[in-house]
Design a protein around this nucleic acid. Structure first.
Length: 149
DNA sequence: GCCAACGTTGGC
DNA sequence: GCCAACGTTGGC
């Protein structure tokens, strides 16, 4: 999952312990969050629009299938007039902090590894805030992040 | 700040 | 249903 660190970073998640991933307003990203994420699944926390961008750490899904109530709240920046109690449209999950990588895995580093060339986040024009990755890709990145160098 | 890529909106 | 216009994302 992606977040701009100026808005919400891995350090914010570490401080908060858990956070609701509210404000996703893209159907594809919503579907991944709703259908492809299960309770206790691990997630990578990617810093976008950052200096540098890259993967900063790891979280875990601590609640799944929540209604994103910010869509129903006219005072919220994420308010969606099309959302109703009966059909809230937008869903979210709660994420819990697991670790901040001792070694930040930069975008440049991700791109340099052929084994990771299939990562959706590396594809040209990829803008989704939530994307799936394979277990193998996940494990490679966990290794990189925990390598002190 | 630029710009490519993509999603959404709305006129027709 | 098409498609131009517009807004957003995000790397650089």
């Amino acid at each position: 999952m992606k977040s701009e660190p100026d808005v919400y970073s891995i350090d914010d998640l570490r401080r908060d312990g858990t956070t609701k991933w509210e404000g996703v307003r893209n159907y594809q990203a919503r579907n991944f969050m709703r259908d492809a994420m299960a309770l206790a699944d691990k997630v990578l926390f990617y810093h976008s629009n950052a200096k540098p961008s890259g993967i900063a750490g790891v979280g875990v899904i601590s609640k799944q299938g929540l209604v994103d109530i910010t869509a129903l709240d006219p005072s919220s920046e994420f308010f969606d007039p099309k959302a109703t109690q009966e059909n809230p449209i937008w869903m979210t999950v709660e994420v819990a902090f697991v670790e901040k990588f001792p070694h930040f895995v930069s975008l440049q580093e991700l791109k340099s590894l052929p084994a990771l060339s299939g990562l959706r986040i590396l594809q040209k024009g990829s803008r989704l805030s939530i994307t799936p990755l394979t277990k193998k890709e996940f494990e490679i990145i966990i290794q990189l992040g925990n390598n002190q160098s």
